[in-house]
Design a protein around this nucleic acid. Structure first.
Lengths: 102, 102
DNA sequence: TTAATGAATAAGTGTGTACTTATATAAGTG
DNA sequence: CACTTATATAAGTACACACTTATTCATTAA
């Protein structure tokens, strides 16, 4: 998944709260919702966004849907951020050195 | 800067385009805008968001404002993402091992 | 000081999206 | 089968925010 989609998915407090709940391990949609103040459909919609972004995976267990974080879904963003940071650090240092010569 | 603010700042294509321009080094507001299709005020507004998020720094040079990426502004998000990923990987592996035992 | 340049701010508008309620679907239980 | 539980989907609403044009501010130059 490209990193833009990942950022868009992470750029929402409710979705981050959902991920915070899933951080420690898998959880049903209902359990996720029980810790939030929004309605059940809202949770379902957010889970869909997270799923389409590749950040969470779903498996069925009877009437329940169990969600868990898929680490692979975060790889693209993590790589992009790391590379961006490296570039920024490099040009930051170059600018500092250029200042020193003045 | 907390990572939520950083994500919010990154969650916009125009701001990411601005950062893409600044990635290689510092640049004036006008130069940034010249590569984009949006108007000058829009660029200025986006630069303000990036500045308030701690992602870019501004310095004055005559009538121009020079912007550059501040690597430190990305540290919080990078750390959070790394820790989140670690946790997700850990519980992912635990779940795999639990499956193996069944 | 007047004009010109570069950028920020003010104010208004349209649209995307995060919600809501209502309803549908799916799976287990009596 | 009817009923309950768990979740998803449909449809509508409200608000945040990414834009716009108009204006202001700041700096340099004539």
């Amino acid at each position: 998944m490209n990193y833009e989609v990942t950022i868009d998915a992470l750029a929402n407090p409710t979705r981050r709260a959902i991920l915070g709940r899933l951080r420690g391990g898998a959880c049903s949609a209902g359990e996720i919702g029980s810790t939030l103040t929004v309605t059940q459909p809202a949770v379902s919609q957010h889970l869909k966004v997270l799923r389409q972004a590749g950040i969470v995976r779903q498996e069925r267990a009877g009437t329940r849907r169990i969600y868990r974080v898929d680490p692979a879904g975060l790889a693209g963003l993590y790589d992009w951020l790391g590379e961006f940071w490296d570039d920024a650090l490099k040009s930051y240092k170059e600018a500092m050195e250029a200042d020193d010569r003045n």
